[in-house]
């Protein structure tokens, strides 16, 4: 299923799309909230899939994964700063040997834990019990499913991914995930299967709920729409297909000032596999660190110092402010 893609060096979109000037033109400034709510930890780029839209360039060929020592620093940071939510991402985070320990220790501290789970990883050796592990620790599962039809899903995520994803959702449902009011949260993520903006979140969530139930008897809680970011592997796709300029123009034209307030970079602190700190996972992949004067690594972390500070921005930020807005929790301006 997973095709080894070479590591793509393409990082930033071309052109002079100045996000900071756009904010200023609307009288807006992008500053952090008073506290960090979400501690988003990327435990590495190793993945069993190699999706065409992946902003991480994750694949089975990647070797960059968080060490046990850095994972220990993550837990220490949770103990010290009591971030309400730990959002674990990758790659496929479950493939990191420290993953289960990090989840268990974070939950023991009372931290809400979300895992960006790609569904198919539960069919990898040693991962078969993931649904039971997630249930045992009341993990919130967030899973990408680009569409409720095979063609669009496999086009983005690789041949055979749709069938495996449906089977994985069955397993998660069977242990109690996705039932309304059941307490075990299963949220899905919709990414457009191409160079266009996501539909309205509420409308496409209703489509997914109706179709997944009718076709496969599957249930989930909420659906997040996330815009494809013009960086790394998706940017390479845009360039290969002659869509870069058109897509960037679309993002800039669709700039929505109302989407700015809810941007995830305002209340999220992102950590990479080496322990470096960023304003978001996208900045992390561009190696665009937090602004000067702020702690740069986990070992220097002082969460209070981020309050009210500016966020590092670039042309890719237009991806999060287009249309209804986009964040790791979906639309930011009313889907």
């Amino acid at each position: 299923m997973a095709r080894d893609l070479k590591v793509i060096r393409t990082t930033r979109p071309a052109g002079t799309h100045d996000f900071a000037s756009k904010l200023a033109a609307h009288g807006l400034a992008l500053a952090r909230a008073s506290r960090v709510e979400i501690f988003q930890v990327n435990v590495g780029k190793l993945c069993n899939q190699a999706c065409k839209h992946c902003h991480v360039d994750a694949s089975p060929a990647r070797t960059e994964i968080m060490s046990g020592e850095v994972a220990g620093q993550v837990v220490e940071a949770l103990k010290e700063f009591r971030f309400p939510t730990l959002d674990i991402t990758g790659g496929a985070p479950e493939l990191n040997p420290s993953f289960r320990r990090m989840v268990a220790e974070a939950r023991a501290l009372g931290t809400r834990v979300m895992v960006r789970h790609n569904l198919t990883v539960m069919f990898e050796p040693g991962q078969e019990d993931l649904p039971e592990f997630f249930r045992a620790h009341s993990v919130e599962v967030v899973s990408s499913l680009p569409y409720f039809l095979e063609q669009q899903t496999d086009a983005q995520r690789g041949r055979g991914v749709f069938d495996k994803s449906i089977e994985a959702l069955r397993r998660l449902n069977s242990v109690g995930y996705g039932a309304e009011g059941g307490g075990l949260v299963l949220n899905l993520v919709y990414n457009p299967a191409g160079a266009f903006l996501p539909p309205k979140q509420a409308a496409v969530e209703a489509d997914f709920k109706r179709e997944l139930l009718a076709r496969y008897g599957l249930r989930f809680n909420s659906l997040y729409t996330i815009t494809n970011m013009p960086i790394r592997r998706f940017l390479e796709y845009l360039r290969r297909t002659g869509n870069e300029e058109r897509y960037m123009r679309r993002l800039v034209e669709a700039f929505n000032p109302a989407a700015v307030e809810g941007l995830m970079c305002r209340n999220t602190l992102s950590v990479d596999w080496t322990g470096r700190l960023y304003d978001c996972d996208f900045n992390q992949m561009l190696e665009l660190g937090v602004p000067e004067g702020l702690p740069r690594t986990l070992s220097e972390l002082d969460a209070a110092s981020f309050a009210g500070r500016p966020v590092s921005v670039g042309p890719h930020c237009f991806g999060c402010t287009a249309g209804a807005g986009s964040s790791c929790g979906g639309a930011t301006a009313g889907g």
């Binding site: 569409y147 039809l149 457009p192 266009f196 539909p199 309205k200 496409v204």
Partner: peptide, 10 residues
């Protein structure tokens, strides 16, 4: 075509 995709049609 773009509007249809962006409003959720397949």
């Amino acid at each position: 075509s773009q509007s249809c995709l962006e409003s959720g049609s397949n």
